[in-house]
Each structure stands twice: as structure tokens, then as C-alpha cells.
Design a protein around this nucleic acid. Structure first.
Lengths: 339, 339
DNA sequence: CGCGCAGTTTCCAACGTTGTAAATGCCCCC
DNA sequence: GGGGGCATTTACAACGTTGGAAACTGCGCG
């Protein structure tokens, strides 16, 4: 049986609290006593019961990170950052996978494992802003990342997705391309505020600003943001006769699928079709050709999300008004859009 | 303030235990009482404190999964499976990143957050088998995945890494290649039982079985298993004058880096150099060329690891002798080794 | 009308820890 | 030598929950 404070106390012939004081480095313990107790602690291999501590303290030191899918490199890279940053604060991260299902997103936002976690960082896919309005003060602090749910009563970090898509599109237009397709539209899904909708919007803005016609035949839809969907959507686009000479893929994973489809059809990238993605996942730096992309500052997103959560957990933090942080991004041109 | 059993009990005019009984569906509660209490529960939005339950029950329903790096797609894909399988058992997964550091691996194996988690699934990189010998019965059950620590006092699931590397090498030899390089050696790191050592061993076995000379100039070392290391190691191999006509990369991530380097140097794959990896990560299905690989049965590894943990947690499970499960793998030939 | 019984409900204790307040021991000075 | 003041140690309660045993209820039966 694992030794408890009481066991140690009995063996050392002191009170439980004194042992606790030694364990926690409480200052008013005489050196002799400290040493004696410490020795017994070591002897018995005492390990504090994190659980009991939590119950007592009301804090757990655990935060949850709920992502659509760990297999998507963008999310796994982001998760890596979050785990690392949280670690610096002495927190542990409990990773949840929502599969982008509204039901599961609601579940985590509503607080399964209540009192087990101090806060939640959620990357919503299917959640509407209404879904969060009836969160109460009893609910744990929530920070949303990556997708804007307008007027949601929660903190939010994300890049400006409209601007990102616009920057990417402008980059393509800057190459002299005239038929810039948008790959990654998600018509039915979520509200007008989903990532896909925002990025589509940015694409349109860029085209309009350049005085170009927005041809809806150049928009290709996908069910999810996986590589195979990118490949299929690219195929559909090419077979529709839309004849794009550039493609803005709504994320890198889609772009990698698209690159593959272009390759299979003998189309050269970027000579025949230029391709750009969004996310800057590591794969894109090693694909053939390497993938131009919009690189969100993932480290900063992770850091900000954790910091906002921390602020909410401080006394009085719950009363702060919902905050909106816009993370920066950067255009990273690589071979797939080489002039 | 979040409602507690006591609050509900007071409001409903019953005892705390009765409310508890209703919450837990305890059978001997009269229908009238059940309904009345349930109504108050709903009214007050009661949510059980997972923490207090844990303390009482001694079980937490949380397991930890400690991986070297989430950004490595093999691990993130595996993590996805583990989370999913654990979910089916009603468990939550706490994901830890060890960065492959011995210190951090020891920390998690030794039980940080003691009593917070019921069990641990660890993918060791730097840990030697000695590091685990003084684990006691007080420690939480441990299941190792992916790397063999011989005679370690813990359950273990992995593919037969020697056989896997041998199969991959034999595949390359079967193409008629005669100078098959091994990319991914890790000389200093860990013991002779690290993945890298096992895979090197498999490579040697295959060469010897084919009656070929084992040329150590065809072995290229890497510091870690990241894409950039694969690229660099490939460059080193080509510049050393070793002139390989095939490369066994010790994982897919390295292979993807290697593919890129070959491409940069104008070498054709597989015409000039055939390439095969191990892991079957999603990227490899979309790279140019698509990557031949050894596909470990990730779903089965995840499922087995979780099952073994579950068995350890059952009464008497702690007394089981350490078990060894060998997961299956499959050769998946793709373009990078097309005949 | 009282007794026993089955079915409900309640009371008590415990899970392991730590904050608070009270108790103890000690030293020093008058 | 006794009392004040300080440093150290201890006792107690509480965090929110649930298992087990005890207590209560109403009912049928002798």
C-alpha cells in the first residue's frame, strides 16, 4: 500500500500536519524535525495523493485541450505547443478529440469531468455561437482557438482568417494568375463564421479588390479537411472544366492532397497550377514541390490561449469581459508558387 | 457557486445520501422520491465533482499517454487511436510529451500526478530497462509501446522491429537493388534495444541472409527522427560516396526528408534510388512519389495497450507477470519502390 | 393492537490532504 | 523564579462524495 501522510506521521512519531509541512516546505519547521521527517518520507517512499490535494485546493492543475482531430498535423503541432506552454505553468494537459462533432464539442464545453479540469481550450468546428450562450459562471473558463464564433461569451484567439485567405489569394494574383480557385468550401457545415466560410470570404475579397469576377465554378467543396478530400476536390475541380491556374487550399492538408492529384494528372506545379495552403504544417516544407502557405504563429496562439486561461483562473478573472486576440500570420512562399 | 449534493439535499428536504443515490441510479429509491430529487437536481444544474468521487473511489478514470513528440505524425495518429479506444472504456487520456528525454520519461514513469491517473502508456526513447526495475507495487500499472526494453517489468506492445526492418530490406533487395542503405541509426542513444538498433539489426539480417556484404558506409546516423534529420542524413549519405541504390529509412518521417533531398539532387525515386519507410503515416500516401512503408497495425497497438492496462487495473491484475504482445505489420509497397 | 418484515431513507465514517487556530515548549529578561 | 513572547508543533475541520449500517416507515398478519 502506498504510504500516506498518516503512515509517515505514525512512524516518525509526529503529527500528520507536521509531515505535511515538511512535504510542502512550510517555513516554520525546525531543522532537526525537518531532517527526521524527511528521512522517514524517503524511507517509506511517500508520494502525495494529487487527488486529495485537488479536492482540498479546489484546483487541479489540469486543463483540457479539445481538438477535432489529432491526426491532422496542424492540430498535433498546436497540441505540442500547448502541452509545452502549459508545462511551464506547471499544468498538465488532457487532450480530447471531438472529431468535429457538435455533440462532442458540447459535451466538453459543458464540462464532462467537472472539477477535474480547471479550464478548457477548445477548437470548435461544429459549434454555433448559440451553443455557448447559456454557459454559466459555474462552468470552467473556456478559451476558443481557431474559429470565430461571433459574440460568443468566451475568450478567443485566432488569426484573422479573412485576411489570411486574402493575403494568400493576393499572392497568387501577384503571380499573374487569373483563374484562382478556392478549395475547401464547406457549404452546409456550421454557421457563416466557420473557418471555411471566412477563408472563402477572404478569397472573394481579394478577387473583388483586384477587379476580378468571382466565378463560383472555381469553388470546390470538401466534407472535411483531410488529404484525401483535398485530392478529390482537386479532381472535381479539374474535371468540371473550370481550368484554374492557381488554387487557394483552405489548409495545408487539403493542399497536399491537391498537389498529389495535380501530379497524378501530369500538371506541373507551379507552372500550370500554383498552389498555396494555410497552416504551415511541417509536411509542406518537405513535399514535392514544397508548399507555399500562410503560417499562423502557432506558438503564440498556444501561449496566448494558455495565458488567457490563466488570467481567468486568477481571482476575479471570471468577471473579465470576453476577449478577442488576433494572432499574427505570415506568408511563406515556397516552390508551389514560385514566380 | 456550483451546486453540491448538500445544496440539492437541503433544497429537496432530503438527506445527502438520498440525492447521491438518485444521481447514481441506486435501486432502492422510491419512484416519487426519485422524481422529486431529480427535478431539484435539474433545477440546480448539479454536476458531480469528479475529484471527490475519485478520492472516494480510489480510481480516477484517467490514463496518461506519454509520447516523445506529438508533432511526429506516427505518434499523433497513435494518440488519436488511444484516445478513441480509451473513450470506449469511459476513460480519459492525459497526453504527455517527453521530448524523448530520459529525465522526463523517468518522471512520468515514476508517477508525477500520483493518484491522478490510473495507468500509464509510455513510448520510451531514452529509458533503459534498468530504469524500470525498481518500480514497486505502489506504482501505477505501466504499458510500454513501440520499443523493447528487455526484461523490463512492464507490459509491452510493439511490432517485431527486427522483422519489420528485415521485411522492408528484403523488399528492396527483391527489386534487384544491391546497395541498400540504412538511414536512421542512432549510435549513442539508448541501449541496444532502442528502435533504431533493432531496425538496424533487421537490415543487417536481411543483407546477410541474401549473402550480401554489410557495408557500414551505407549506414547513416541521425540525431532524432524528424524530417530535417532524414534530409540531412540522406545528403550525408550521398556525399559520402556510398552510392546507395535503395534506402531503408527507419521511419516514414525520415523517409519524407530523404525523398525531398533526393529530389533536390535530381535523383529519381525509385529509378535511381528506391526508398522505403516504417510507420505508414498519412503523409506517405500523398507524397511524391508515394512512400512504400511497413504499416504497423496502429489501431491494434492502441487497443492492446489499453486492454492490457485495463487488465492490470482489475482486481488481482497487478500480480500478472509482465506480458509481451507482438503487433502485426504489413508491407505496403507504393511508388517509391515500384519495380 | 402489536410485531416483524421488506423497502426506504438517513446517519456516520472515510478517502488524503491542508488552512486555521490553538497548544506546547523554550528562552530570556526582569 | 515567574511571566511574556516567540517559534514550533498539534488538533480540528473541511473539501464533496459514497459504502455500510442503522433507523425509520408502512403494511400485513397473528
Amino acid at each position: 500500500m502506498q504510504a500516506r501522510l498518516r503512515d509517515v506521521a505514525e512512524r516518525a512519531g509526529v503529527s500528520v500536519k507536521t509531515v505535511s509541512n515538511v512535504v510542502n516546505g512550510y517555513p516554520h519547521v525546525s531543522p532537526g524535525m525537518r531532517e527526521r521527517v524527511q528521512q522517514v518520507l524517503d524511507e517509506m517512499g511517500y508520494r502525495p495523493n494529487a487527488n486529495a490535494r485537488m479536492l482540498r485546493a479546489g484546483r487541479t492543475g489540469v486543463i483540457a485541450l479539445a481538438l477535432p482531430e489529432l491526426a491532422n498535423p496542424y492540430f498535433s503541432e498546436l497540441a505540442g505547443f500547448v502541452v509545452q506552454v502549459a508545462e511551464e505553468r506547471g499544468w498538465t494537459v488532457l487532450v480530447d478529440q471531438t472529431d468535429g462533432l457538435r455533440e462532442r464539442e458540447l459535451l466538453v464545453a459543458g464540462g464532462v469531468r467537472h472539477h477535474l479540469i480547471d479550464g478548457l481550450i477548445l477548437s470548435p468546428v461544429a459549434l454555433g455561437s448559440d451553443d455557448l450562450t447559456h454557459r454559466s459562471a459555474d462552468d470552467i473558463p473556456l478559451v476558443l482557438i481557431g474559429e470565430k464564433l461571433d459574440a460568443g461569451p468566451a475568450d478567443h484567439v485566432a488569426i484573422d482568417n479573412v485576411a489570411a485567405a486574402r493575403a494568400a489569394t493576393e499572392h497568387l494574383l501577384g503571380l499573374g494568375r487569373t483563374r484562382v480557385a478556392a478549395l475547401g468550401h464547406q457549404p452546409g457545415s456550421a454557421s457563416e463564421s466557420g473557418v471555411a466560410a471566412l477563408r472563402l470570404h477572404g478569397w472573394e475579397e481579394a478577387l473583388r479588390a483586384a477587379g476580378m469576377h468571382v466565378d463560383e465554378h472555381l469553388v470546390s467543396a470538401v466534407p472535411t479537411f483531410r488529404r484525401e478530400d483535398g485530392k478529390a476536390a482537386m479532381a472535381a475541380l479539374l474535371e468540371s472544366g473550370a481550368r484554374p491556374d492557381a488554387v487557394l487550399c483552405f489548409n495545408d492538408t487539403l493542399a497536399i492532397g491537391a498537389l498529389r492529384e495535380l501530379h497524378d494528372r501530369g500538371l506541373r506545379v507551379p507552372a500550370d497550377v500554383a498552389v498555396i495552403g494555410i497552416d504551415d504544417v511541417a509536411d509542406g516544407r518537405f513535399s514535392v514541390p514544397t508548399l507555399s502557405t500562410i503560417a499562423p504563429d502557432k506558438a503564440s496562439i498556444a501561449r496566448t490561449a494558455v495565458r488567457m486561461l490563466a488570467e481567468r483562473l486568477e481571482p476575479g478573472g471570471r468577471d473579465l469581459a470576453p476577449r478577442e486576440v488576433v494572432a499574427s500570420f505570415e506568408l511563406v512562399p515556397r516552390e508551389s508558387t514560385l514566380a
